[in-house]
Design a protein around this nucleic acid. Structure first.
Lengths: 130, 130
DNA sequence: TGTCTGTTATACAACTACTATAACAGATAA
DNA sequence: TTATCTGTTATAGTAGTTGTATAACAGACA
């Protein structure tokens, strides 16, 4: 799986990493049980520090996306976390300000829903492509 | 309009402020042309520093939500910014990781769309209420 | 003139993001 | 056993962000 880092972005490097890996899992590009590159190899591939990759991996572990086997390395969880009430609350907290902004920018409800649908589609198809 | 600050949250204070004010504008609770409290009065009401409020107001000005008249203070823009291509790109960048996460948590497309619809509804109705 | 407004300049403490070395411990293969 | 791979931990430095604290400035208006 291809991972790209934008050093100019104001999004922290480890967040860019976690986002892309989560999208990889969502799309199926990263299969359950598949191993991620080691912190050392990925950091040297991307030209960034080992600890930055480690921070991303630790966050993914914390949130239940991966588990870690010594020597085997970091592996995508077979059973991903199910959404519970806490997750839905936190999801709403993230979406709410985005919707407020959209309303102010005169983006209609339909337009936003359509954007969501197209992103769902994109993610699903990007998994099949790989 | 009621503004509440959560000092325990990991969301920066000035971000909490901008989010709530933007939601206020979106809902109509803050009318076009209406004046916001002065940085000094709002900061003392909330028990936070003047500069924190000022940072929120400056961000709102930067993004075109308010304009500033000396003496009159900070006033909601009559013509809010319209969504352009750049806005849609940045909107997709925000929504994309949320959708990836949702997929991994087994949240269906329909469930997420329904959440968006309910938030739209909430925001619109909260404006009428006030 | 006094008082309101936003603005600007400094400065400080705490925290975050990223980097840099270095070392440790478990697992595996030669 | 030894070498090499894995993640983990410790320490430390730089830079930037967040929030606070004083203080002063300039425009507007009663």
């Amino acid at each position: 799986m291809m991972i790209k880092i934008n050093l100019q972005s104001d999004v922290p490097l480890y967040t860019q990493l976690t986002n892309q890996i989560i999208e990889g899992i969502a799309s199926g590009a990263l299969a359950r049980g598949e191993a991620l590159p080691s912190v050392r190899s990925l950091s040297s591939d991307l030209g960034i520090n080992m600890h930055t990759v480690n921070k991303a991996y630790s966050a993914l572990k914390q949130e239940g996306y991966v588990e870690i086997h010594r020597q085997k390395g970091v592996v995508v969880q077979n059973s991903l976390p199910e959404a519970d009430d806490a997750y839905y609350r936190q999801l709403e907290e993230k979406v709410r300000p985005i919707i407020s902004e959209s309303i102010c920018h005169n983006v209609s409800e339909d337009a936003l829903l359509e954007l969501c649908r197209s992103i769902f589609k994109q993610i699903r198809s990007s998994g099949k492509a790989t």
